[in-house]
Amino acid sequence: MDLKPTEITCSKMFGGYNRRYRHYSPTLGCSMTFYIYFPPSPLPSHKFPVLYWLSGLTCSDENFIIKAGAQRTASSEGVALIAPDTSPRGLNVEGESDSWDFGVGAGFYLNATQEKWKNWRMYDYVVKELPKLLSENFQQLDTSRASIFGHSMGGHGALTIYLKNLDKYKSVSAFSPIANPVNCPWGQKAFTNYLGSNKADWEEYDATHLISKFHDLSATILIDQGEDDEFLHGQLLPHKFEEACRAVNAPLLLRLQPGYNHSYFFIASFMDDHIRHHSQALRLP
């Protein structure tokens, strides 16, 4: 059981490097992989701020690195990209791979409370274990300067993690987030299985409910949503989040993008805006 990350692949890109690592996660009880994109360094002693990306259902740590087109702007802005996996893998829990929207590849960035799914603690992995691992093993990363974003299930994760940890992240953004999971089939299925039947426990992982607790957000929340997204009205519900933000005067920029769907083609089209949104926040004192 190697707790220290071991590099398993490396590819140069825009002067920096995509590096993939494997390590044993005590939080999840299994081996995990994650990617880091290191921008080109101006000086050996230079430290980069970090931007965490959380991927959606069925994805791994590879989708974003391969498909999102984020490295060009991350390179020019001097921001390191961190892409973890979406769930524990290899535990062989009964039923973990029975459906694409629950179990493996569908961790929902929460801490499960039901005994069967006790290893599904992606919230603690992303918020606690991974930053500590990065800080202790990569001197070139400044984990005290961090922001977070994601897509779909990962957009849900980014929004909820940010709202519950305003002291840890400078900014947040999302593509097509599951913005009100307590009211959509994906969220209801996941929350029932991971958290049980108590709806109050569900609301602790619902951005639309969490936003009502905050009245002093300084950074604008950026959300891009494709108008031709097949999941827009049944699963994502960004307008519920927009209404909740308006009620507490929380700064939100929700951009509805005509003609775009739920895919990485959409994500890649607006990725540069999101990287710059975070880069600006990460440069602030």
Rank of each mutant, 00 (worst) to 15 (best):
P185Q: 02
D61A: 15
S135W: 01
L130W: 08
T9H: 08
N261G: 11
P88V: 02
T27F: 04
I148P: 10
I161A: 14
I275E: 12
F231V: 05
K4I: 10
Q140F: 01
T9D: 09
N165G: 04
L236A: 03
K128C: 04
S263I: 12
C59A: 12
L166S: 04
P26L: 05
Q114S: 08
F270Y: 12
M1D: 09
R283W: 14
G105C: 09
P238S: 09
H262Q: 11
S31R: 03
L163K: 01
L236F: 08
P26D: 11
S147R: 09
D206H: 02
S99R: 06
W120N: 06
D216R: 06
C10Y: 02
R22A: 09
G95C: 03
T143R: 00
P88T: 00
K168C: 15
N119G: 01
T9W: 01
N183D: 13
R20N: 04
Y123N: 10
Y24N: 05
I161H: 14
A247F: 13
C245I: 12
G103C: 09
Y35V: 14
L284C: 14
S55H: 06
S197E: 06
S269Q: 10
L237G: 09
Y125N: 01
P84D: 07
R246H: 07
N261M: 12
F265R: 11
